[in-house]
Design a protein around this nucleic acid. Structure first.
Lengths: 245, 245
DNA sequence: CTTGTTACATACCAAGTGGTATGTAATACC
DNA sequence: GGTATTACATACCACTTGGTATGTAACAAG
């Protein structure tokens, strides 16, 4: 049954007609016995590293870090263990690189990138960002949730080095929101009695929580609904009208 | 290093002076070879099951379901594999029971139980509940997060049977909040243009997200701050004053 | 007291794990 | 062109994992 999970999990990873087509080396050593013959393939360390990172990200995203199998990663990357342990000293370091080089870029682009491309006042920009993100939702994002959040919940208590890197990513994300809010406060489009930093952290938390709930419920509708409620919260951050008593 | 994690993880589990004192059976079979002799201990199936569930909960809470070791669970429960597989057909079923019999009770008591004990209008009750929960926070809750959320993020995509049980628990939790909100709407203490169900789901999501962020940041202050911002969101759900235009 | 069933305990196993030791071809450098 | 180093490939290993087969004592029913 574990096997079943794996197969199912792997199904969507492309068409994969040839099961062994991606294998690192075609000259068969099997059948014979001591006939060693290392690859004659060209050597492209950057490409290899990138393939490893991407394969590792996929596997970790689906199974979690601890359950992620190096053999599976290697198979999907089309390289062998020698390559992996040449580029990374151990599994943990591979995970660190996935956080720093893949997950972080992905997350900041998905949220802050989209945010920066919006126009208008801060609140509207944030609201539009939410709408835009809702529009872009993929089935993977609904069923598998946020890769950063998944990792955070799993490994934060297990390894301090992991936790620090993940926390730094959350901080960068939060700082991006806080910047926008503070700029809005400076121009008068956001009420000044709100603590930009705290509100920004709340936004990140609420977003991650919404993804988590939706993942458990397997419901894009729930995710959308939650982000819409969050949008009404943002509405409440607009400065109060003049001429009130 | 894996060993290190384990030891550290286990450190807080009480004083545990005698390492083998809890071992299921004292008459040594070792040294000899075929000298079998099953336990003469009294048989208390309910107690045994309960010990297994509690030990399983602890281990799963700390390491996650997939990484949870049955051997560790058995050691902590003070029973053997025979007992485990008498009470549960496999590891997954043990996990299911942990969700249904331990995590669910815990969560609903922690939130809905506390909520029901509050007096006054719905909004105030919810706000007091948040404050009360902040007051009760243990270091474990900050560093390890919410056991239901942890499990949800890890196993929801892996096993549909798991996902269903977890989603049902989230639903019960959400329904509890929604009930309070609807009752508040009926008595006029909550604005009627809010969708109680959607708001309730948002609350659960925001709470879980806040715990998740705080866990990653290892910061009780962040958790408190986030719940306070959520409290201001609740404030906005009070009905608008009469005599406005 | 006998007997059937429940509630365990013990020993064992196949499979998968991360990691390593060793070899070798491609490449950069002189 | 020789040589050192990089970038891998292959084979292997110790260990842990969930799960099972088997045995046996406690207990309930008769």
């Amino acid at each position: 049954m574990i096997v079943t999970y794996r197969l199912v999990g792997r199904l969507r990873t492309g068409f994969s007609l040839a099961l062994t087509s991606r294998s690192p080396h075609l000259t068969t050593t099997h059948l014979g016995m001591k006939k060693r013959s290392a690859s004659r393939r060209r050597r492209e360390p950057d490409v290899t590293r990138e393939k490893l990172l991407q394969a590792a990200f996929d596997e970790i995203y689906r199974r979690g870090f601890q359950a992620a199998s190096l053999d599976t990663i290697l198979e999907q990357a089309g390289v062998t263990k020698g390559a992996l342990y040449h580029h990374f000293p151990d599994k943990a370091s591979l995970g660190f690189a996935v956080v720093d080089d893949v997950v972080k870029e992905l997350l900041l682009e998905r949220w802050l990138g989209v945010l920066e491309r919006q126009e208008g006042d801060a609140i509207t920009a944030l609201q539009t960002m939410l709408k835009e993100r809702i529009r872009q939702l993929t089935p993977d994002e609904v069923e598998l949730g946020c890769p950063l959040n998944n990792l955070a919940q799993e490994v934060s208590p297990l390894d301090e080095r992991f936790r620090r890197r993940i926390a730094a990513t959350f901080d960068a994300w939060t700082a991006g929101f806080a910047d926008v809010l503070r700029r809005g406060q400076a121009t008068g489009s956001v009420r000044r009695d709100a603590d930009a930093q705290k509100v920004a952290a709340f936004l990140v938390g609420a977003i991650e929580g919404s993804f988590g709930l939706a993942k458990s419920a397997k419901s894009a509708a729930l995710l959308r609904s939650n982000l819409e409620v969050l949008s009404t919260f943002l509405e409440g951050l607009r400065p109060p009208r003049k001429g009130r008593r």
